[in-house]
């Protein structure tokens, strides 16, 4: 009978070797029926003789994978693996469409837990670097509203991205907002009453605002248009995300011959303002 010891887990490979017996960390033999999906053996470590000099690295895993339920119906259900990493990989490959990921958390607690992890959202964005356009904001003057452009299965109601700035300085009052543009899921707005520029994340409702310099009085000099760019767009590895996931950059307002810098619009900057 071959014997190896279990220590220093660094497992990648997993296999069962007939006749191989395992000891746990306390050097107690482990019964064969407890092997489960069995020992994990890493290169340089598979050594039936258990030569300590080689540094056998074995991990005793849990019980064997739960077998699928045998249903009596024609379409037997697929049992998903117990391995959370594997399930996460599956969920990461859901298409970035409204009919898939937003519904998945309601399946069960396990799915909800995995999908609610902020790290999952970062990985999901990284997996889907070119998400589809889910809709557009229409109504460039007054009160911009969302309009879905996807088919009925993926249709997002306009209320989902209703501007949630209502309680914030009269956001819903018609005629107060001017839509300058959208990019990477952010919306650039100008509040004429407050004379400030607002960068809004419709998904989370998060927003940043910066006051327009008093020189732009709306009479002789006024805001005409704006454009939104991601300051990190040149970085191929950059994944566009929420405000918190991007590095701080500078908002730069180009005002004729002079410039004003603002540092609190996070990773976005605005440029190309024209004044009439």
């Amino acid at each position: 009978m071959q014997t190896v010891e279990a220590h220093e887990v660094d497992a990648v490979a997993t296999l069962l070797v007939p006749g191989l017996r395992f000891h746990d960390a306390a050097h107690q033999p482990v019964e064969e029926d407890q092997y489960g999906a069995i020992a994990s053996v890493w290169r340089g470590g598979w050594c039936p003789a258990g030569d300590p000099a080689v540094g056998t690295q074995i991990q005793l895993l849990g019980p064997p994978p739960r077998r699928r339920h045998r249903a009596t119906s024609l379409a037997a259900p697929v049992t998903l693996p117990d391995d959370n990493d594997l399930l996460t990989e599956i969920l990461l490959r859901l298409p970035p469409r409204p009919s898939s990921l937003p519904r998945a958390p309601l399946v069960c607690r396990r799915w909800h837990r995995l999908i609610s992890d902020p790290a999952f959202h970062c990985r999901f964005r990284a997996c889907h670097r070119n998400p589809p356009i889910v809709g557009v904001f229409a109504g460039d003057v007054g009160n911009p509203f969302f309009r879905s452009v996807l088919d009925p299965l993926d249709h997002i109601p306009m209320e989902r991205f209703w501007m949630r700035l209502a309680e914030d300085k009269g956001g819903h009052v018609l005629g107060r907002w001017r839509l300058f543009g959208c990019r990477h899921g952010r919306v650039l707005l100008f509040n004429r009453k407050q004379n400030e520029i607002v960068l809004w994340d419709p998904d989370t409702g998060d927003h940043r605002r910066v006051a327009v310099p008093p020189e732009i009085d709306g009479e002789e000099k006024m805001m005409w248009n704006g454009a939104l760019l991601c300051a990190a767009a040149a970085d191929d590895s950059h994944v566009h995300g929420g405000f918190s996931s991007c590095p701080s950059k500078i908002l730069r307002l180009l005002l004729g011959d002079w410039r004003v810098k603002r540092s609190h619009l996070h990773s976005w900057f605005v440029l190309g303002f024209c004044f009439g």
Partner: peptide, 21 residues
């Protein structure tokens, strides 16, 4: 597997994968 999940309601996914709510 992800293709089997996509576009389904939570109830449909529970049925497909034998998951208990």
């Amino acid at each position: 597997t992800a293709d089997l999940i996509k576009g389904k309601t939570p109830e449909q996914n529970r049925e497909t994968f034998g998951i208990v709510n």
